[in-house]
C-alpha cells in the first residue's frame, strides 16, 4: 500500500490534479462550471464503486444517498437558515443514517434483492419529496437561500479539492487491509465467511462510507447550484449516470469512477449542439466500453499491468 506513492498511477494522478488546479487561470467560467459539477459526480461514482466494485453489491439507488444528503442540507438551510457548512455536515450525517436504515435490512436479503431494495428507496424518496412539498419544495424544487460562493473559480477549487481528498480516502481505504477484506467479501461471500470475516459487518461499513461521501457531495452540489430538485439529485436517471460513470471508468478502481464521471458530463456537454443525439452518442460509447472493455478505462489499464 505504501508502495502506492511510487507507482505510475500516483504520479499520473498527482500530475492531473496539479494541472486541474491551474485551470481557473486560463479557462472560461463555463468550463469551470461544467467541471465543478463533474467533480461532484466523480465523488458520487467513486462512492458507488466502493459498494459495487469492492463490496460486490449493486446499489441501483445511488441517488437515495445523494438525495437525502442534498435535501437535508438544503431544507435545514432554507427552513432554519443554519450556516452552509453546518448544513453540509448534517446532510452527510443524514445520508449515513438513511444508508444505515436502508442497508441493515437490505443486506440480509441475497442476490438481486439488495439492488431492488435500493431502487425502491429512491422511488420512496422521490414520492416523499413530492408529497411533503411544503417542506421540500415538491416537484418545483427547493430554492436555497445560500450558496458556497458565486465565483466560478472558487466553486471549482472547492469541488476539485473535495474530489481529490475523497479520492485519496476512498482509494486508500480500498487498498487498505479493510479494503481487501471487503473485496474478498464481495467476490466470494461464502469463502470470506469461512475465512472468519463477518461479511455483513464489512459491507455495512462500506455502505456507511459510501453514504457519507454521497451525502456530502450531494450537499455540496446543492450549495453550488443553489437549488435542490428531484431532477438534479434524486431522479433515477441521475443514478443511472452515476452507475454508468463508475462502470465506464472501471469497476474496482475507485479513481476510474471519477474519470468516468468527468468523461460522461464533459462529453455530454460537448455534444450538446447535437441535441437529443448527444445522449445517444454518450450512451453508445458507454455501451461499447462496457461490451469491449468490461474493465472500463482504468480497469483495462490496470489489468494489463496485473498481467505483466
Amino acid at each position: 500500500m505504501a508502495s502506492f506513492f511510487t507507482t505510475r498511477l500516483f504520479f499520473i494522478s498527482l500530475a492531473l490534479v496539479v494541472i486541474a488546479s491551474t485551470l481557473p487561470l486560463y479557462v472560461s467560467g463555463y468550463v469551470l462550471g461544467l467541471l465543478t459539477v463533474a467533480f461532484y459526480f466523480g465523488v458520487f461514482a467513486m462512492a458507488w464503486d466502493l459498494l459495487f466494485g469492492f463490496a460486490g453489491e449493486v446499489n441501483f439507488g445511488p441517488t437515495f444517498l445523494i438525495g437525502v444528503g442534498a435535501y437535508t442540507a438544503g431544507i435545514l438551510n432554507a427552513q432554519f437558515g443554519w450556516s452552509v457548512y453546518l448544513c453540509i455536515v448534517l446532510g452527510a450525517l443524514a445520508s449515513v443514517v438513511a444508508g444505515l436504515v436502508l442497508a441493515l435490512p437490505a443486506l440480509r436479503v441475497r442476490g438481486p434483492y439488495f439492488g431492488l431494495t435500493t431502487l425502491v428507496a429512491v422511488l420512496m424518496l422521490q414520492n416523499f419529496i413530492v408529497v411533503f412539498a411544503d417542506l421540500t419544495g415538491g416537484e418545483i424544487g427547493l430554492t436555497i437561500p445560500d450558496v458556497i460562493s458565486i465565483d466560478a473559480g472558487v466553486n471549482y477549487w472547492i469541488a476539485l479539492g473535495f474530489m481529490t481528498i475523497s479520492a485519496a480516502i476512498l482509494y486508500g481505504l480500498s487498498q487498505s487491509p479493510v479494503g481487501l477484506v471487503l473485496q474478498a467479501s464481495g467476490q466470494d461471500p461464502v469463502q470470506a465467511g469461512a475465512l472468519g470475516f463477518n461479511i455483513v459487518k464489512h459491507k455495512l461499513a462500506a455502505f456507511i462510507v459510501s453514504a457519507f461521501f454521497s451525502g456530502l457531495s450531494g450537499a455540496l452540489l446543492v450549495f453550488y447550484f443553489g437549488t435542490a430538485s428531484v431532477g438534479t439529485v434524486v431522479d433515477v436517471a441521475v443514478g443511472v449516470n452515476v452507475i454508468v460513470s463508475a462502470v465506464l471508468g472501471g469497476r474496482r478502481t475507485v479513481l476510474g469512477a471519477a474519470l468516468g464521471a468527468i468523461f460522461l458530463i464533459v462529453a455530454g456537454e460537448f455534444l450538446r449542439p447535437t441535441g437529443e443525439l448527444a445522449t445517444f452518442i454518450v450512451s453508445a460509447v458507454a455501451l461499447l466500453v462496457v461490451l469491449f472493455f468490461p474493465g472500463g478505462f482504468l480497469g483495462a489499464a490496470l489489468s494489463r499491468e496485473a498481467r505483466s
Partner: peptide, 10 residues
C-alpha cells in the same frame, strides 16, 4: 433545472 443553472451562469 441543473442544466438551466449552468446555462444561466454561463
Amino acid at each position: 433545472s441543473a442544466d438551466s443553472v449552468r446555462a444561466f451562469q454561463r
